[in-house]
């Protein structure tokens, strides 16, 4: 087991290096240079060259890459081209918000998806099942920015039940209920796609379990149906789902870019959008790297959980 984990960890190293090279290269190949945008074309060429030199953009690409990656490895992410602040500061002030949002979305997805998935499985081929199936496919298919805008439109603007955006009431002191009030809609929207998927997986997993011999045995013993399903069935059905939750991470990160913009949620996704619009390459590259690292970690956790949960997997 330990050797497996170590081996998996070692494999991630070249993977991350490859990712960093691709990230860096893509930024280089994107049309237009940050220096061109930052300085107006009327500026004497010498001044522009000075700027390019100050940004270190005139050096050969491998040198630029080496400088960048050695900074990243040692935790020095450089300064933003636009705000001139250290990128690490910009990330740190936003990371908590994104983590809160993602955690809340995950919890919401689990709370909603698992019971619904069970119901769907238990009542297989009934109207309830079809309705749930329909809704979950819709949940996967409908883009979440649209859901977000609709919810804002109706729940916030029309009925005034929820705030339109932000993490808390402006200029209010910290208040946990207020925070949750602000958190609910964005978390719900971010959770939509995952909820829908998780519902489908729960249903499938539950159906598989439902027909197992030990369920029949439990029933034969005269247990109540609810106990049969929840205790004997669910426990076994949940095992494969644990890994799924780790794999939800990527969609959460991707979704947060959109959801945070729609709900003015000051997190990493929002920062990513802003930076992209301003061509703030140092920030874009770090966020892309961070995302890649998170995805790799999510992958790793999933694999390890698989291994723990299902002893039949060999290393």
């Amino acid at each position: 087991m330990t050797t497996y984990i170590i081996r998996r960890l070692l494999i991630t190293i070249p993977l991350l290096i490859a990712i960093s090279i691709i990230t860096f290269a893509l930024m280089q190949f994107a049309p237009g240079s940050p220096a061109v945008l930052d300085v107006d074309p009327n500026v004497p060429p010498e001044a522009r060259e000075a700027q390019i030199e100050a940004m270190g953009l005139n050096e050969p690409l491998p040198v630029q890459y080496a400088r960048w990656i050695s900074g990243v490895v040692t935790g020095d992410f450089g300064n933003s081209y636009i705000t001139k602040r250290p990128v690490s500061d910009m990330l740190l002030e936003r990371l908590p918000n994104t983590l809160i949002l993602m955690t809340a979305a995950t919890i919401l997805a689990i709370i909603i998806a698992i019971p619904i998935g069970i119901i769907s499985a238990v009542r297989q081929y009934t109207k309830t099942d079809y309705a749930i199936t329909l809704v979950s496919f819709a949940g996967v298919a409908v883009p979440n920015f649209w859901i977000g805008l609709m919810l804002i439109m109706f729940l916030s603007v029309q009925f005034g039940w929820f705030p339109v955006g932000g993490v808390q009431t402006l200029n209010a002191d910290f208040n946990i209920m207020d925070r949750i009030h602000h958190l609910f809609l964005p978390a719900l929207v971010l959770a939509t796609a995952d909820t829908a998927q998780l519902t489908r997986y729960t249903r499938t997993s539950m159906l598989e379990v439902k027909n197992q011999d030990y369920i029949r045995t439990a029933r034969a013993k005269g247990f109540k149906e609810s106990k049969v399903i929840l205790k004997h069935g669910l426990r076994n059905a949940l095992l494969p789902l644990i890994t799924l939750i780790a794999i939800m991470l990527p969609t959460l990160i991707g979704g947060s870019v959109v959801v945070e913009s729609v709900f003015s949620w000051p997190g990493l996704g929002d920062l990513f959008m802003t930076s992209v619009n301003q061509r703030d390459y140092p920030v874009i590259m770090i966020i892309t790297m961070l995302t890649a690292v998170l995805v790799v970690i999510g992958n790793l956790i999933a694999d390890i959980l698989y291994a723990i949960v299902d002893p039949r997997i060999e290393y």
């Binding site: 990712i19 691709i22 990230t23 893509l26 930024m27 190949f29 994107a30 049309p31 237009g32 794999i247 990527p250 969609t251 990160i253 991707g254 959008m273 992209v276 619009n277 301003q278 061509r279 390459y281 874009i284 892309t288 995302t291 890649a292 995805v295 999510g298 992958n299």
Partner: peptide, 20 residues
Amino acid sequence: TQWLFLVMIFTMGMLLAACG
């Protein structure tokens, strides 16, 4: 799926940066 996602993130980053 995860690889697909990684590719998507990169592409998205590039596209978005390009339409900056």
